[in-house]
Structure formats: C-alpha cells, structure tokens
C-alpha cells in the first residue's frame, strides 16, 4: 500500500457474511466504494489474489472453513509479498494474533472492538502505521530472547539493534505499550509523533516476520492452533 494513498484494493477474507459486510463498510468508508473484494475461504482468497494483481491489502480471518488464516498469510507473504496482511481475530485468541504477526501479518483487527475503534485502526494502517495492544506488546517482548537466537538476527548485525533486529527504541516503545500507555501518551513521553510511533510498530511487525514465518507456521501447527 502506498503510504499516502490509504489501503488500496482490499481483500476481506471471512466466512461470516455479517462480519464481512461490517469490514467492507468500514474499509469503503475510508477508501471509497469499489475498493474491496471478498472471499469466504482460503482457496477463494488464493484465487482472488492470483487474479487481482492490483490487490494491496488483505484482511484475513483466522478460522476459515478450508484452512487456517495463518497459512493463508504465510502463503501471501511467499507469493504476493506486496500485499499487506492484516489478521482479524476473534475473542480471546491473542496467541493466534502473535502467530499471525510472526507469519507475516503487519496488523490486526479485534472483532470485539467497536466500529469506531476498528475505523481508527484501519485509518492508522492507511497512514502506514500499525495498531498495537498491551497483550501483543507483552507477547513480542517475551519472544525477544528467542528471536535473538535465530540465525537471521545473528548474521544481520544492525547498529543499535539488540533483539532480533528490533532496536532499543522499538523495545522501549513495546515496554510502554505493555504497560497500557496509549500511542498518544507514548508520543508525549518520547517526543515522537504518533505517526512515527505507529510506523515503529509496523517495523517491529515486519522484523518479527523476518526469518520466523516458517517457524511460526510450524510452531502454530505444533501447538495445535492449526488443523
């Protein structure tokens, strides 16, 4: 997606029609009508992705009838890397959100939230940012020592980076999010703009996915999230 031009053509993948309609409404309220297409299953989504080269964003539900959203996200990451994946998470499925982020998603929407809040999250994504919640921040912080051990992070010694390529600043922001501070608070505390904070979040998500995509799918399968 272009940082300036919103979400672009967006594929909404959900097997629940009402949720699909809700999301389509939200996305079209931001990007205008005709900027969405929908799919109800993994196969359907893969077909749409193949036939729609102008696709920029995919909102992916996790529990699909013919497969798991994490696999679809990983597949999109492999074959359509220019598509930005956002995971749609149901109730109390925080573990899956983290797994999806590691599989390559750079954002998530929680079904339980109000439309206003989801709209805010989509707007943030349209601006090039990514929303984050304390539980996600805590999950990533807990993952950091493990990421540090992956060979990818060792072979790419970025200056100022500590854990798996995630910089000290990013770690600091994760810590503040984990404590429950809102992005606005964090902006105030760090002297950065909200937009910068949001792009930090997105950068964290991207780094999280590097090298751990396959591992994430494998792990999710092992822990019984998939299948």
């Amino acid at each position: 997606m272009d940082a300036a031009t919103g979400l672009g053509l967006t594929l909404v993948v959900d097997d629940d029609a009402s949720m699909r309609r809700r999301l389509v409404n939200l996305v079209e309220a931001i990007g205008g009508s005709g900027t969405t297409c929908v799919a109800g299953s993994v196969a359907d989504a893969q077909g749409k992705a193949q036939t729609t080269p102008s696709l920029r964003t995919a909102l992916v539900d996790l529990g699909l009838p013919d497969g798991h959203g994490i696999e679809l996200i990983a597949w999109l990451g492999d074959f359509h890397p220019h598509v930005t994946c956002v995971v749609i998470s149901a109730w109390g499925d925080e573990r899956s959100v983290l797994g999806a982020l590691r599989a390559g998603a750079v954002g998530y929407l929680l079904k339980e939230r109000d439309d206003d809040e989801l709209r805010l999250a989509l707007l943030s994504m349209a601006r090039g940012g990514a929303p984050i919640d304390p539980f996600v921040a805590r999950g990533i912080l807990a993952l950091l020592p493990k990421l540090n051990d992956t060979p990818v992070s060792k072979t790419t010694p970025t200056s100022g980076s500590e854990h798996g390529g995630i910089s000290r600043r990013e770690t600091e922001i994760l810590g503040l999010v984990a404590q429950g501070h809102s992005n606005r608070d964090i902006a105030g505390m760090t002297g950065l703009s909200r937009l910068t904070i949001e792009s930090y979040t997105k950068s964290i998500y991207r780094k999280l996915a590097v090298g751990s995509r396959t591992a994430a799918v494998f792990e999710a399968r092992a822990r019984g999230i998939l299948d």
């Binding site: 206003d116 919640d133 539980f135 984990a178 429950g180 501070h181 809102s182």
Partner: peptide, 18 residues
C-alpha cells in the same frame, strides 16, 4: 494487577480518544 490494568487502560484510552 499492573498487567491487568494495562489492557483496560489501553482499551479505554482509545475509547476516550475516539
């Protein structure tokens, strides 16, 4: 308790912001 409050705080910060 801090961990439990963090989620609540985050959620409600957003709501108040909206």
């Amino acid at each position: 308790l801090a961990g439990l409050l963090a989620s609540l705080r985050h959620r409600w910060s957003h709501r108040f912001e909206v």
